[in-house]
Design a protein around this nucleic acid. Sequence first.
DNA 1: TAAAATTAATTGTACAAACATATATATTAT
DNA 2: ATAATATATATGTTTGTACAATTAATTTTA
Lengths: 149, 149
Amino acid sequence: MKLEEEIKQQQFRDPFYKAVLNIRVTESWLSTRMNQMLKPFGISQEQYNVLRILKGQFPKPSSLLLITERMVNRMSNATRLVEKLRQGGYVTRKECPGNRRKVDILITEKGLELLEQIKPEVEATMDKMKNLNQEEADLLNTLLDKFRG
Amino acid sequence: MKLEEEIKQQQFRDPFYKAVLNIRVTESWLSTRMNQMLKPFGISQEQYNVLRILKGQFPKPSSLLLITERMVNRMSNATRLVEKLRQGGYVTRKECPGNRRKVDILITEKGLELLEQIKPEVEATMDKMKNLNQEEADLLNTLLDKFRG
DNA sequence: TAAAATTAATTGTACAAACATATATATTAT
DNA sequence: ATAATATATATGTTTGTACAATTAATTTTA
């Protein structure tokens, strides 16, 4: 759907400013769908992302710093996201033996099972949204990387 | 900067899922810079956007519904964003004479002046971020429109 | 080795996002 | 004209974002 219809605006100061709005609108469109899909599982998009980071390191534990570096939104608060996941039983936290400033965070069996349950739902959601072929997706990635300089 | 470095992840399940992450990372990158720029003016990116919508309608008043339809993030709360702007003296609210359910929202002189003050700062921020030429921006817009189906 | 600087995480605060639900007014159907 | 439905906005709640400031542990350097 064209941006013009999406936000009922016909004129943009230039194609670049239009792209700025388009990125924001598309992100919002995307997050709405991802969060809808995750809702039955009781976790948010950010919490899902943190679980995937932890699975990527598993069975090695991760520090909050490692998680922050890999998070989509650098400004959100890893401490509090992890605490929510801990309350759900999806991760454990313990003091790092070698460095008492650090916290070793580990995904639990329950956390890994949750990711397995979510997997087919993510695949289905992705398939439903997949309006770009591989070449177009590659091109979009190139342009977004270039957008950030 | 490549997404791989941005979130320290080397593998992605496919180019489409990579694009999903890339859109979210780019939006976050963008919003951080826009909000930084707006900070000295004491308004957020969404409040700025609402002011621009109101200016687009000026001197006609806008309803909350009209604002919601034009907002970048449909899920955020127009009532509360407008209330913040009213507290700052940038907009007025009054009951719509023809339909008492509606609220007529109008940008004030102070609101229009704020937009004028912000304008050169936005231009400067855009120039600093402008890593795409016009053809690339057009192509990015086409791909994002197609992404949303 | 004590002081200074750095690192890692936590806590506090204000605001925004993402809903669900409620309230008031207007429109329509009976 | 009354009841049912739809429309427009407001309110409540939980979580996330965007910082700044604090605390505690470690490393550096004087």
